[in-house]
Design a protein around this nucleic acid. Structure first.
Length: 118
DNA sequence: ACCGTGACGGTAT
DNA sequence: TATACCGCCACGG
């Protein structure tokens, strides 16, 4: 059965699941699309506390400036780097170019916010 | 109840 | 581009 952490987290995880392989998004963006504007920190929380029985592509989420949120040198940082590389997402100069790999390209924005399915 | 700590983000300088 | 601040909010001590 699906574990319910919190209604907000559920919405966040649903949104997170829409980001396809090879693309990335910022925490704030996910929060916004999930209907929780200004609550980017909650996205980090949700990813962190996602129940084990749900597969979450946590590595596809970065800070708004394209940097990995974990401290440099930390294990989480290295692991995320590795997972991104596995999806062909380039991490150059400690950051990902959201213009190239971002799920947030303007062309999808309207659909994400107002339109039907992704 | 208070306070420090984050997987954050926008603005100002 | 980098730093500094401040708003944000759930959690743990």
């Amino acid at each position: 059965m699906k574990v319910r952490v919190s209604p907000e987290a559920d919405r966040i995880l649903d949104t997170v699941a829409k980001v396809p392989r090879g693309r990335v998004a910022s925490y704030g963006q996910i929060a916004h699309v999930a209907g929780l504007p200004g609550r980017a920190r909650l996205v980090g929380w949700a990813l962190r506390h996602a129940p084990d029985d749900v597969e979450v592509p946590w590595h596809r989420f970065l800070r708004a400036d394209g940097r990995i949120a974990f401290p440099e040198g930390s294990e989480g940082y290295a692991r995320q780097c590795r997972l991104l590389a596995r999806e062909r997402v380039a991490v150059e100069a400690e950051r990902v170019d959201l213009g190239r790999f971002g799920w947030n390209r303007a062309k999808n924005l309207d659909a994400l916010l107002w339109g039907p399915r992704d």
